[in-house]
Simulated assay, not measured.
Amino acid sequence: MTTDATGTGVTEQALASLQGAADPRLRELLTGLVRHLHDFARETRLTQQEWERAIAFLTATGQACTDTRQEFILLSDVLGLSMLVETVHGHRAPGATESTVLGPFHMTESPVRALGDDIDLAAGGEPCVVSGRVLSEDGTPLAGAVVDVWQADDKGYYDVQQPGVQPAGNGRGLFTADSEGRFWFRTCVPAPYPIPTDGPVGGLLRATGRHPYRPAHIHFIATAEGHAPVTTHIFVAGGDYLDSDAVFAVKESLVQDFTETDDPSLAREFGVANPFRHARFDLVLECAA
């Protein structure tokens, strides 16, 4: 028997082994994965030692995952895969809010809060109000829409990163829009922060000479009956790292002004000290097909 120096015989056999999959989509996905993986190995002349190191890296990535940390999402993020998948499937009606990555810190349920509540339970940052409306693509207010919010504190940490330091649920809230689709809450201006670098993904960034920072942002998931949900952020305009986000998630339409506001009547309305920072952001949802 002659040796197949290119390995195409192995590839053909592996692809043929998948043809019995009952789920056609599973068959399609695995066929594409095997084909591209085999082509990668041939193109780069992947060595046994290199593949063993890759397996060790993936093993370490899985071992770094906990109930409050998802290292595989972090890996997907820094490789740009999370943003690519979101972009491929993120086409929306004109005017609908653009989506972006979920990120690795949506790990706990946000506590239900009343409109206007303060999610900065540690009260350590620059006071800020975020307000807006949830609208259908034709501008109709979506009464009762649910807005899930989570963010880092003014030092760049999420509550799940600092148990015992931050109160549980700090920076998180689940809000229900009023009869006019409006939502608003108090918080602090978030800070830029490094993604966790104490695990295998951090080692990968160091090995490739990349910084780990994300620009300051607040996460949202908005849902409403009869509409497609949207997962998105708003980014603080003028901040650092907008042009070099470690997870490639910045979109121009999501960069918002956090304007310093000196309006005593508005401060009284929102229940904050004057002056304060104010970000206005409407969430426009696409009608479900």
Score class of each variant (00 low, 15 high):
residue 92 R to A: 14
residue 92 R to C: 10
residue 92 R to L: 14
residue 92 R to I: 09
residue 92 R to W: 13
residue 92 R to M: 11
residue 93 A to M: 11
residue 93 A to Q: 13
residue 94 P to G: 00
residue 94 P to W: 02
residue 95 G to L: 02
residue 96 A to S: 13
residue 96 A to V: 15
residue 97 T to Y: 02
residue 97 T to K: 01
residue 97 T to R: 00
residue 99 S to P: 10
residue 99 S to F: 06
residue 101 V to N: 01
residue 103 G to S: 06
residue 103 G to K: 05
residue 103 G to V: 04
residue 104 P to W: 01
residue 105 F to G: 00
residue 106 H to V: 02
residue 107 M to G: 02
residue 107 M to E: 08
residue 108 T to K: 11
residue 109 E to T: 09
residue 111 P to K: 00
residue 112 V to Y: 07
residue 112 V to Q: 13
residue 112 V to W: 08
residue 114 A to G: 04
residue 114 A to H: 08
residue 115 L to I: 07
residue 116 G to L: 08
residue 117 D to C: 00
residue 117 D to V: 00
residue 117 D to I: 00
residue 117 D to Y: 01
residue 119 I to W: 05
residue 119 I to A: 01
residue 120 D to R: 04
residue 120 D to L: 04
residue 121 L to C: 12
residue 121 L to Y: 13
residue 123 A to I: 07
residue 123 A to G: 13
residue 124 G to R: 13
residue 125 G to F: 02
residue 125 G to A: 03
residue 126 E to R: 14
residue 127 P to G: 13
residue 129 V to W: 09
residue 130 V to C: 14
residue 132 G to E: 08
residue 132 G to L: 06
residue 132 G to W: 05
residue 132 G to V: 08
residue 133 R to T: 10
residue 133 R to A: 11
residue 133 R to Y: 09
residue 135 L to V: 06
residue 135 L to R: 02
residue 135 L to H: 03
residue 136 S to L: 05
residue 136 S to W: 02
residue 137 E to R: 10
residue 138 D to Y: 05
residue 139 G to K: 06
residue 140 T to Q: 15
residue 142 L to R: 10
residue 144 G to H: 07
residue 145 A to G: 02
residue 147 V to P: 00
residue 147 V to C: 03
residue 149 V to G: 07
residue 150 W to H: 14
residue 150 W to D: 11
residue 150 W to Q: 09
residue 150 W to N: 10
residue 152 A to L: 05
residue 153 D to C: 00
residue 153 D to K: 00
residue 155 K to A: 15
residue 155 K to N: 12
residue 156 G to K: 01
residue 157 Y to R: 15
residue 157 Y to N: 14
residue 157 Y to G: 06
residue 157 Y to F: 15
residue 157 Y to K: 14
residue 157 Y to C: 11
residue 157 Y to S: 14
residue 158 Y to S: 11
residue 159 D to P: 05
residue 159 D to E: 14
residue 160 V to N: 06
residue 160 V to Y: 08
residue 160 V to K: 03
residue 161 Q to P: 01
residue 163 P to Q: 14
residue 163 P to H: 14
residue 163 P to A: 13
residue 164 G to W: 15
residue 165 V to H: 15
residue 165 V to P: 12
residue 167 P to W: 11
residue 168 A to E: 15
residue 168 A to P: 13
residue 170 N to V: 10
residue 171 G to L: 12
residue 172 R to G: 00
residue 172 R to F: 00
residue 172 R to I: 01
residue 173 G to E: 05
residue 175 F to G: 03
residue 175 F to W: 06
residue 178 D to A: 01
residue 178 D to F: 03
residue 178 D to V: 02
residue 179 S to I: 06
residue 180 E to S: 08
residue 180 E to I: 00
residue 182 R to V: 08
residue 183 F to G: 00
residue 186 R to W: 10
residue 186 R to V: 09
residue 186 R to Q: 14
residue 187 T to A: 12
residue 190 P to I: 11
residue 191 A to H: 06
residue 192 P to E: 10
residue 192 P to M: 08
residue 193 Y to D: 04
residue 195 I to F: 02
residue 197 T to Y: 03
residue 197 T to S: 06
residue 198 D to F: 08
residue 198 D to M: 04
residue 198 D to I: 04
residue 199 G to Q: 05
residue 201 V to Y: 03
residue 201 V to C: 03
residue 203 G to I: 04
residue 203 G to H: 06
residue 206 R to M: 10
